[in-house]
Design a protein around this nucleic acid. Sequence first.
DNA 1: GGAAATGTAGTTTTT
DNA 2: CTACATTTCC
Length: 990
Amino acid sequence: MDAILKGLNAAQSAAVTSTAPVLQVLAPPGSGKTKTLTARVAYLLAHHGYQPWNVICCTFTIKASREMRTRLKSLIGERLESKLLLGTFHSICRRYLANYGYLIGIPKGFQIADSSDSLAILTRVIKRLNVSLEPRSTRTRISRCKAKAQNVDEHLQQPPRKKASADEQEFLQVYEEYQNALAASNLLDYDDLLIRCADLLRARPECVGNVEAVLIDEFQDTNTVQLELMKLLAGKNRRVTIVGDPDQSIYGFRSAEIQNLTRMQRYYPDTSVIHLEENYRSSAAVLCCAQEVIEQDTVRPNKRLKATHCYGTFPVLRRLPSAHDEAKWIVAEIKRMKAMTGNLTTFSDYAILIRSAHLSLLIENALGKAGMPYRMVGGYRFFDRDEIRTLLDYLRTISQPNNNAALSAIINVPSRKIGEESLKELLRLADESGTSLWSVIQKYTQGDLTMKKKLSRPAEQNLCKLIALVKEAKKRMVNVTAESTAKFLLEFCLNKLSYKEYLQGKHAGDHENRWANVEELLNQANDIAESGSNRNGVDSEESLPEIEGLDKQQSDSNDEALATFLANITLSSDLQATEDNQEQECITISTIHSAKGLEWPIVFIPAVYEGSIPHSRAEDTDEERRLLYVAMTRAQALLYLTCPLRQSRSDTETTLSSFLPLKLHRHFVQIGPVVTDKVVRDIALILRRSPPSEEELLKGLKSLSERESSGDNLWPADGSAKPKQWWDFEDEATSTRHKVDLNTDRQHNIHSNRMHYSDLKAGTTMTETTMTGSSSFSLAGISVGFSTAARHLELTQTQVQDEMICREREITTSKRTTVAKSRRGKTKASGGQGSLANFFAHGSFGSTTERPASKPLPEPELPSYINAPLKQEDHNIPTVFTSHKLSTKPASLKRPQPLAEIPNGKRKPYGFLSSSPSREVPPDQSFKGSCGGDTNRATGPESILSSTSKSTTTMHTTSVDMLRLQSAPGRRKTYGVRRMMNGWENRKNH
DNA sequence: GGAAATGTAGTTTTT
DNA sequence: CTACATTTCC
């Protein structure tokens, strides 16, 4: 059997081996799209004899392309992988233009205008033309035009429509001027890269004459130009494979068009379509929620997500009083989960996915305070930081002095006494004489040119120095190796500009952080300098295969290296993780957009309120909904949505996202789960990891305070403000503390459950209210073990019982669906005084369900590779975990994914996959156990810590110690970026 | 004209 | 809370 096909299901195999020339693989999240695509690449190389340099792999985001690279590396080896033409559309286009752009008149050494360049150019154009357009919106408008028009000129040459409004004319004027400005500076903006590359391939199709296959990931995110590019890249061979999922189309704002899927089918009538259906990523519970969300989209063709994992643990919809509390709660919950799952999860298993980048701030602060390592992905780019941008603009000026955008940006940084007025005048002169700013200032300083208003004496002198700097840099950079050009120039500039001193003067407050960022940039350049020398030349990634009769553009290797360095920076959202960063286990904070295609065991989605998701400025609600869907489907085992009831800024009340209507709440619980043995086992199963040992669990448990370990109970479940007293109780006797807590908890629950829901939606009936009002938690699973393991607590059974709150999902009978039906009515019998469930059951919400005392359910038989379940003892602690199945039909059980799918490849797979002598796993047996069927249901009072007699002497790790272990002091980094805790330092001082 | 100081509005998502 | 615009002072 072919190794490539190992571990693929039938549909995936069919896709991989398909002989169809044009293939669409359409599939929901987690169904192995990327895996299929990478396997197909490997298959094409192995069985069709394609050469890697004749195969193009396009992804949409940098992250996706990195991910694909890694996967391919392990599949076909680095030697082959590195020869593939793999990258984002933009980077691939840039490569073609760098090599062949001259064929369509693109001057060599063009640079890429990023958003801020575009914005700066537009701002100046708009000011100069004195029109009333907004630079920002004009930029997006232009981008939209470009994404749709097949080429710019075509768009501009369209006869002005009869009724072209004044606004439209102004816009076209600005558009044209903008293009002129780009051309004058030898710049291409992001869209131009695509358009011009399409132009090139149309004019000279032989550039891609070698291409044997084109593969595209996330096809639903392509725009018109990219579709066109696909056709052009595929050329006459027209062998194309795409994977995609309309439900995950979230780039409409970048003019992505879902219709491209059908357009492609029309263009290639022989397109075969293969659907993948099984989801291998998430628990059924997660899928169920996500499905409910996406199905609110009424125009969407109905598709089913087939779960292959067990139902798992209920997703959480957590309400908190404010965004501050939300951040603190997330931190507390991660801490709790991580500890309570022993060594099953590490920080890298946790992700916080946010709609907007600014939402990360509070969370970053909270994580920082708690000493938890994290990295931020997406949002503000490292290279957009002021101190970095300036340096890069110096490099860009040295590389291409005629780049007006870059020169304008640095001409007065550090201050050279050349103000905005003077600059404007200089630019005007440049524009009039059809030359660049660079030649204007040269002429001016040589006296060949006069300005209306002369520059001041010092300004003139400073300008001369700047010119000298650029010239000297250019002269001296030829003396270093190509690879170290960037490094050399950076150091040169830092020196000449006394950059460190400049930063100190300008940012007295946090110059240290800024300097640290500069050092990080230096490191980056350094890495390139070092890695470059042991490769064969700088441009190993750059090169395109030689094509007969076509000459590639040649240029000096130092220039080339510098240009590549700068281009790669412009086209990269982030720093590559350097080695020591990779080692560090980090919580991921990411925008949802950047999280696409990725997965994490435990996912938090904060700020699920109206205005955030859906975003207040979003024009397409459906796309916002898909965004939430994408975010939710990143989760493998545990999913948390959180919603602060007040926005911290304006102190206004929030409304829960309309994507989470009440009828959906039955799929959620209100607070984080109590970490029972079952919860842990389910996580282990879904992640295909070995369950943690008892020692590890105990260790984790002991690292938490008693309060923390007892459950998600630091905040009231309904999001009402945290009572002040809680701080004060810390030193009081244990038993009283818990009782008081419970009481406050309960009161707050009663109080604001009502308030909140009636506020939420007028006309909501009380019965609906009950649905969400009742989730609580149980201590049963852990408390016994806890009390025995930590004898000093002297908790008696009765006290434990008092604390116990039974998790219970009281779902209104009227609204109950098959999903919920199978599992209700099992609840603890003697909830005791402190039981929330008890309260809700008999309290004001009208549920009359009788709950018989449930005998502990028989423990499901577990496969032998799972640590034998802990022996059940009759603790007389009633517990109920209700649980739901996705449908009445049990989720089909699939063979476990192969090793390649195991996240990071770090985790040890189960014994039978790695070390067990018997590799044969009975196909449908392998993941029974707590998966599927009845094993989902309440598993009764199991203790995580079955063996309490074990020595605990070695387990004195306190939470502080643990954190110290996890993040060595002073070494905590955020993905190479020293983040600025805005005003944090200042606040600390006050 | 340039720079510092004060006042004001405003904050999607990515290449 | 900060980037940006408007003032005021040099």
